[in-house]
Design a protein around this nucleic acid. Structure first.
Lengths: 250, 250
DNA sequence: AATTTCCTACTTGTCAGGCAACTTGGTTAT
DNA sequence: ATAACCAAGTTGCCTGACAAGTAGGAAATT
């Protein structure tokens, strides 16, 4: 009853722009709006959304645009639609999609939280990789370790080789969720570092200690010593986080 | 000269269905198709996608449908579009959205992997919660512990109270990423258990030992003993996983 | 001849209207 | 009372059109 669509006249295509503000696109922004309504608890699970027609009218956008917006929510598992019936807020327990949005790069708190998650994921992955790795896995890991060493010897930072080394380890764990999540977080953090490094002096000279830490991780994996592997990974990640903290504190 | 779209007659609306197979919706399925093209490396970062017009013709669907599909990819950060220029494959390093899809419920391997991730996240969260929790956090955790006890005394399984207890702990850690991820995984696993329980006998009688494990976690948090908190959480999670394994092995 | 300006075709963003498929609830017929 | 049926409402998808922005070549200027 409360949010019944009042028939906004259609004359201005920019009505939405006024209501909703400037954004990436009408559909995107509308999707955000509707998502708000749901996560804020304004719309309860199972409840029926307004019809596309009504939404179209209340926000002053066309139905295709509304469809695009609802399509996003459907894609994220927040709503389910039934042809002929309508669109309904999905049961939170049945949502099968998790979305991690790491948009705000300038937010240092967010970076810290991301790093924390990365540490947890990679430390555990390394721990399990130690006992599960096949000989083939081990060879791959070693190859990347050597490549990293070669890069260090050439005086290069070897960020790509570094990433590949860690990825090979996580891969050896055999859990795709860990692999994908770790990959994403890793890229994200490195991207931040690269951006931050642009306006600060290079710090360099750390690569040798980094490589020593890598060696310690590798040795533990060779021995299939899970506890040692975890410990070595934690040390490595803690040091990496400390290096990163230097960027954060300015 | 504009390449006039040949007036596709109505019946070929099912052309896509033939090309693309039966699915949730044309847009959804098309989105999957296009995603394939990208992640398979067929389309390289920075490369331009076919125009909406072209895609529309090759797949035999209308442009709005193509737009919906591309909109999904855009939403997931896989492509970026520039009005007037086209749609381009996004740089993987710049992707700021992570998507975790846990669709296949029947896949036991998947459940196992999910549980593994859940264990890593919750154990770490509990560890950090021990040192970071405020007194207010502690009160909340205790309240949920008591509620759980009350449920046990009433002879109920207390799944909701259980979930709330863990959520309060993760909340006390103060990292929203951990909170959201843990919440999602927890729901997912419990949902699986509920589904599995439907066709097996209730196992019950475990609730008392569960509560004892909860108490151990709580005590460690009270003492701000991070290591003990992690250990207690790991024990609890390991036991929970073992209980769950009973469902998996049939 | 080199450079700048401008124009035009192309592409994405959005809108309007329409038909088909499906759901739902009430009405009619049995 | 029950079953079959019908009509309104809703989503799924299509066609056609225009606005807004881009890019590359033609034309004008230096």
């Amino acid at each position: 009853m409360s949010r019944v669509a009042k028939p906004t006249d259609r004359r201005s295509a920019s009505a939405m722009r006024d209501i909703i503000g400037r954004g990436p696109s009408l559909a995107d922004t509308l999707a955000l709006r509707l998502k708000e309504e749901i996560v804020s608890g304004h719309l309860l699970p199972g409840e029926k959304l307004a019809t596309e027609q009504q939404i179209s009218e209340t926000y002053g956008v066309s139905r295709p645009t509304v469809r695009e917006a609802i399509g996003r929510l459907k894609h994220d598992g927040l709503v389910v639609t039934r042809q002929g019936a309508g669109a309904f807020v999905a049961d939170p327990g049945a949502v099968s999609v998790f979305r991690l949005d790491v948009a705000d790069f300038s937010n240092k708190e967010e970076i810290r939280n991301i790093v924390e998650l990365l540490m947890a994921v990679e430390a555990t992955a390394t721990e399990h990789a130690a006992t599960r790795r096949s000989n083939k896995d081990l060879k791959k890991i070693q190859a990347h370790l050597n490549a990293m060493q070669a890069a260090v010897d050439r005086g290069e930072p070897g960020v790509e080789e570094d990433l590949a080394f860690h990825r090979a380890i996580v891969e050896a764990m055999g859990n795709p969720f860990f692999r994908d999540l770790s990959d994403f977080l890793d890229r994200r953090v490195r991207n931040f570092i690269r951006a931050a490094r642009a306006n600060t002096a290079r710090m360099g000279g750390m690569t040798h200690s980094v490589q020593a830490e890598h060696q310690a991780i590798f040795d533990a994996i060779v021995r299939k010593d899970a506890a040692a592997a975890r410990a070595a990974a934690e040390t490595h990640l803690r040091n990496a986080a400390a290096r990163l903290a230097l960027y954060l504190e300015r």
